[in-house]
């Protein structure tokens, strides 16, 4: 039996051109570079990484908004990357995305009703009364009063808009949801409302979700497993609590230790690993292990060969050759 979602050596490269009249390829940005991942049905995978690590590109590649350069995306055994544009379009209702910015992800000229009607009817035309009924149900599900359906997005607050965006993503009854930083633009008190909502929906509807965030505490709370991404590659993957509490990869350690804890007592005890410098440019990634220029445990071998993502402990994989030693 095949997995629900499988990413097989997934690669997304962007060619960089220089010059306007005589365009020449100046290199490629390897935004997603050989990602190997699989998800069970109903699983929530948290994907963390810093800006520019390729997590949003990965999301859009799985969504096939960007077609991959190499590798494959299997959804319930079907290879999405082999399909032609028409076939992809027919598959789209099965996987939906929730975006970061609730102010940009809703068409300002469409009422909530119209936006949801459009999304529902991707599964076929419905009679008006049935449609309105369905829209009302959806709004109730995401915690909005149905009598607001004739309003426009600008008449709602950020948190409410994100609820509308979630309702739209649910409308085609997808099996897979990819949430790209869905709470990053929201205030703390609103964040927790949205996180609760997403968790409840996943449970009730048996949804599989990839939850992308730069906030490791949110990801730890919401996901079953966590994958850590750096410069287009996976550094570590494993059960959420284990990855955060006992990180294997030096990058994960640094990432976890960099987050201030909102509790002065634990905060004072926090062991900090402060990395030097910024993440390198994906246009010119370092040789060997991409993390080696910032890694406190670097040795010569790290600069030469790219380490594979290997099982280091049961259920836990990491891409580092020094895990046994440190």
């Amino acid at each position: 039996m095949s997995r629900f979602l499988e990413l097989n050596e997934l690669k997304t490269y962007f060619p960089i051109f220089l010059g306007t009249v005589f365009r020449r390829a100046a290199g490629t940005v390897k935004a997603v570079d050989g990602i190997q991942l699989d998800l069970e049905k109903g699983e929530i995978l948290g994907l963390v990484g810093e800006s520019g690590c390729g997590k949003s590109t990965l999301a859009r590649t799985v969504m096939q908004l960007i077609r991959n350069t190499g590798g494959a995306v299997y959804l319930e055994g079907r290879n999405l990357s082999e399909l032609n544009p028409r076939q992809v379009r027919a598959e789209r209702p099965n996987f939906q995305m929730i975006f970061q910015d609730p102010y940009a992800s809703l068409n300002p000229r469409m009422t909530v009703h119209d936006a949801l009607a459009e999304a529902i009817q991707t599964r076929g035309k419905l009679r008006k009364a049935v449609l309105t009924q369905k829209i009302a149900e959806l709004l109730t599900t995401v915690g909005l009063p149905p009598n607001q359906m004739r309003r426009y997005p600008h008449e709602f607050s950020g948190g409410q808009r994100q609820r509308i965006a979630i309702a739209r993503a649910l409308a085609p009854e997808p099996k897979l949801i990819i949430a790209d930083e869905p709470v990053s633009a929201l205030d703390v008190s609103i964040q927790s409302q949205i996180i609760n909502l997403l968790l409840r929906l996943c449970r009730e509807r048996q949804l599989t979700m990839i939850f992308i965030s730069h906030d490791i505490s949110v990801v730890k709370y919401i996901s079953d497993r966590i994958a850590v991404m750096y410069l287009g590659r996976l550094m570590e993957i494993g059960p959420a609590a284990a990855v955060v509490e006992t990180p294997l990869h030096p990058y994960t350690r640094a990432l976890v230790s960099a987050v201030p804890i909102p509790d002065p007592i634990r905060e004072r005890a926090r062991q900090r690993i402060i990395l030097q410098g910024d993440p390198p440019s994906p246009l010119d990634p370092p040789s060997g292990c991409v993390f080696h220029p910032r890694c406190p445990y670097v040795k010569e071998a790290c600069k030469r060969a790219r380490p594979a993502l290997e099982e280091k402990l049961p259920q836990r994989r990491a891409a580092c050759i020094r895990i046994g030693e440190i």
Binding site: S192, I195, N196, V218, K220, Y221, I222, V259, P262, D263
Partner: peptide, 30 residues
């Protein structure tokens, strides 16, 4: 502020942070 919150808003704000939450329990929301 953290040990003895004296205003419900401050207390609620702290409770809604996922970092301090146990998995499985719904997050406290305002």
């Amino acid at each position: 502020i953290f040990a003895r919150p004296m205003h419900p808003y401050n207390a609620a704000l702290q409770q809604s942070i996922p970092a301090l939450h146990q998995k499985g329990k719904p997050l406290f929301t305002i």
